[in-house]
Design a protein around this nucleic acid. Structure first.
Length: 684
RNA sequence: GGCGAGGUAGCUCAGUUGGUUAGAGCAUCGGAUUCAUAACCCGAAGGCCAUGGGUUCAAGUCCCAUUCUCGCUACCA
């Protein structure tokens, strides 16, 4: 096997929450298996990951909790990093995008592209708050409406008269941040003209050919990845803004662009590179060796990240020049949990760090189960019942039991010493041939990113062992033909030794235990398949139970724990800023009765409602189609905010807003009067 | 709404360029066995391959329509 070079990345976890089993099953575990496998084959590998620590969601969460973004990021980087470590995900580096080296790297990357004129710059005049040192989005500016002279108009619209405005239309504009009068400044945003890259992308994604050179095997890419990319490309790529007005992130490295940061596309994926740099520094290597030349770049990601890694990042890499493009982007579907989607916000999850805390001695057990059900081609589901069954009837009964019987028999017959391999029967030869074939099968499947099957193939070795013992019945033969039994037991022990090799990528701790039992260890995949791994006379140790069975009580406890989260109190948004009584009384809220309802065309969530408000009959568009059907809505008396400026939604003008209550799961409910009040009644 | 990927045994999934009775593991049932973690081994049963059309000598596999699930996207005042 010729030595190859790989740079393997696992999607950067976003540092605003802990990891759950879905993340593990769909990205980190398979990538770890792949990398462990590559290392055993002596390939030159760098396994790169880190936490993605920028973006608006983190600032919002910080605000919600009343702490700084730094604190949020610090917390989750810690939790996630520790969980990876405890779980044995063998990253060469788990870095972070808030690091200095990342900021430098991303900025430099930006500058290279900028110098190569890979961006288009859209320049415009915008208001700027000198006290806060930032450009003001339209909503951050108030002033007097030019048409109705109301004082409370915003930069995009006057709430009073409804006219659409631009910030420059406002008379006497004020910043909502400082209250000062903003000044005009020229601002630029950088766009990536993705449409210029359609041609080569198409060929590269479809055929694996780049600049006329075969670069990767396109048939190895998953259907969903190719399908989604082609759908984007065929639909026509458009310029995308690469910068944002935010203060939490990597600053745009251009003078006069204060208050602007690189958008996530130019931030997170560069994290793979900056992490590599840091690792190279720590290990006295050159990072460029890992991003150039004859090296395979592999991105493990979830399916929501496909376009990002298979279109946008490749465009950036190619535009930058000199850097390699991914050889493959194995995208995983999603893992569900007990009949429902994993959900961080609803706390419907099994958190990795909590699992490790509760079952620190069941790491490999979880790995085995997650690999068995990994969502390689479609969404799959984790249930605690299946967790139990897989562990008990596969790990314990098949693998654990085989190892145990082989070693216990050796203790019994030979005091632990490996007996001699004598003359082989045809049956022996056949079994040996199968032992010989298994590592190759596992390899082939692993290079195709089919770890579920690969793991099953490794387990077949244990099955083979069980069958061999059952067919040979050494416990009977030992009375009549003890010499023959020596050969049988030698082969059984060689199978066990082989298991200690082929299980390493999947179940590293178990493989380690096997090595201890046998007193034999190798990390070289090349040794697998042989039946002379342990020599005659070598002393093996007394085994202990490899896998404890999972009790029903564990399953019940875990399910109860999950069910409990359903009723747990959710964290609601904190109270908003004070509003004056005046502002409140400006709101005209009253009861209305829905007369007619129909779905708005080409919109999933919208219903067009005709509402009797007592004063008039008006059209209101409401985003409730997912929660109410048109039929069930007619005749309902609901709460209407009357004096909102009319607004066109999907071509229909909406004259008001239906007020809805929303629970933590995003379910919506009308606010209806408790007594049978009629339309038009005011609400105060 | 547009686009992409899926819908195959009770469960988790394979099914290569269309080609004989649709496969595996687990669960179920029956048998055999006792070295071993009441484990292992053998066998059986179990599928209108989402639904409805079509192309073909031949369709799980190709085409069209419908439906459900997930993702991307639009849209949720």
């Amino acid at each position: 096997m010729t030595k190859e070079k790989f740079t393997v990345t696992a999607a950067l976890p976003y540092a605003n929450g802990p990891l759950h089993l879905g993340h593990v099953a769909g990205v980190y575990l398979p990538s770890d298996i792949f990398v462990r496998f590559l290392r055993m084959n002596n390939h030159d590998v760098a396994f790169i990951c880190g936490s993605d620590e920028h973006g608006a969601a983190i600032t919002l969460r910080a605000k919600k909790e009343g702490i700084t973004p730094e604190e949020i990021v610090e917390r989750y980087n810690g939790i996630i990093g520790k969980a990876f470590n405890d779980f044995g995900i063998s990253f060469d580096i788990f870095h972070r995008t808030s690091s200095e080296i990342h900021h430098e790297t991303a900025q430099e990357f930006f500058k290279v592209l900028d110098n190569k004129r890979q961006f288009t710059k859209e320049t415009s005049e915008q208001y700027y708050d000198e006290e806060y040192n930032q450009f003001l989005a339209d909503r951050y500016i108030t002033g007097t409406c030019p048409s109705c002279k109301d004082d409370g108009a915003y930069g995009d619209q006057c709430e009073k008269c409804g006219s659409a405005l631009s910030p420059t239309d406002l008379i006497n504009p004020k910043s909502t941040l400082s209250g000062n009068t903003p000044v005009m400044r020229t601002t630029s945003h950088w766009y990536l003209p993705m449409q210029n890259h359609e041609q080569w992308l198409k060929e590269w994604v479809n055929d694996g050919v780049l600049d006329g050179v075969k670069q990767h095997d396109a048939s190895k890419w998953r259907n969903q990845v190719v399908g989604q990319c082609m759908s984007w490309i065929d639909g026509g790529l458009r310029p995308r803004a690469m910068t944002r007005d935010l203060d939490w992130g990597v600053k745009v490295p251009v003078k006069g662009s204060d208050g602007k940061v690189l958008y996530v596309w130019l931030d997170a994926p560069i994290g793979y590179i900056s992490a590599t740099k840091q690792w190279a520094i720590d290990n006295n290597k050159n990072w460029k060796d890992y991003w150039t030349g004859d090296r395979k770049l592999v991105h493990f990601i979830g399916k929501d990240n496909i376009v990002f890694h298979a279109i946008i990042f490749p465009i950036l890499l190619k535009a930058h020049g000199d850097l390699i493009l991914p050889d493959n982007v194995p995208a995983y579907a999603f893992l569900n949990l007990e009949g429902d989607k994993f959900s961080t916000s609803r706390n419907w999850a099994v958190w990795l760090h909590e699992y490790i805390e509760r079952y620190p001695d069941k790491i490999d057990e979880l790995k085995y189960v997650l690999t068995s059900i990994a969502p390689e081609t479609k969404d799959s589901e984790f249930t605690w019942k299946e967790y139990q069954t897989r562990i008990n009837s596969e790990l314990a009964d098949i693998l654990g039991n085989f190892v145990n019987r082989a070693l216990v028999l050796t203790q019994k017959y030979y005091d632990g010493k490996v007996p001699a391999l004598g003359e082989l029967t045809d049956y022996d030869s056949d079994v040996i041939a199968q032992i010989n074939a298994i590592p190759g099968k596992i390899s082939a499947l692993s290079y195709k990113y089919k770890f579920r099957e690969a793991q099953a193939e490794a387990m077949n070795l244990a099955r083979l062992g069980n069958k061999y013992l059952a067919d040979m019945e050494p416990w009977k033969l030992v009375k009549t033909d003890p010499v023959r039994v020596e050969t049988i037991m030698n082969i059984a022990l060689q199978i066990t030794a082989n298991l200690s090799i082929v299980l390493q990528p999947f179940l590293p701790e178990t493989a380690e235990k096997l090595s201890e039992f046998l007193g034999y260890k190798t990390s070289s995949w090349g040794h697998a398949g042989n039946i002379d791994l342990i020599s005659v006379g070598h002393l093996t140790n007394k085994p202990s139970i490899l896998f404890q069975k999972i009790e029903d009580s564990l399953v019940e406890t875990e399910i109860e724990k999950l069910e409990a989260t359903k009723t747990v109190e959710t964290i609601f948004d904190p109270q908003k800023e004070d509003a004056s009584f005046d502002e409140f009384t400006k709101m005209d809220i009253r009861l209305g009765t829905i007369l007619e309802a129909e779905k708005v065309k080409k919109a999933d969530k919208l219903l067009k409602l005709i509402v009797d408000t007592g004063l008039d009959t008006r059209t209101i568009v409401s985003g409730i189609a997912k929660h109410y059907s048109p039929e069930e809505v007619v005749g309902k008396t609901v709460t209407v905010l009357m004096n909102l400026p009319p607004r066109k939604i999907r071509g229909v003008e909406s004259q008001g807003m239906i007020l809805m209550a929303e629970d933590a799961n995003g379910n919506l409910s009308f606010m209806s009067p408790e007594k049978a009040f009629e339309a038009g009644c005011g609400i105060h």
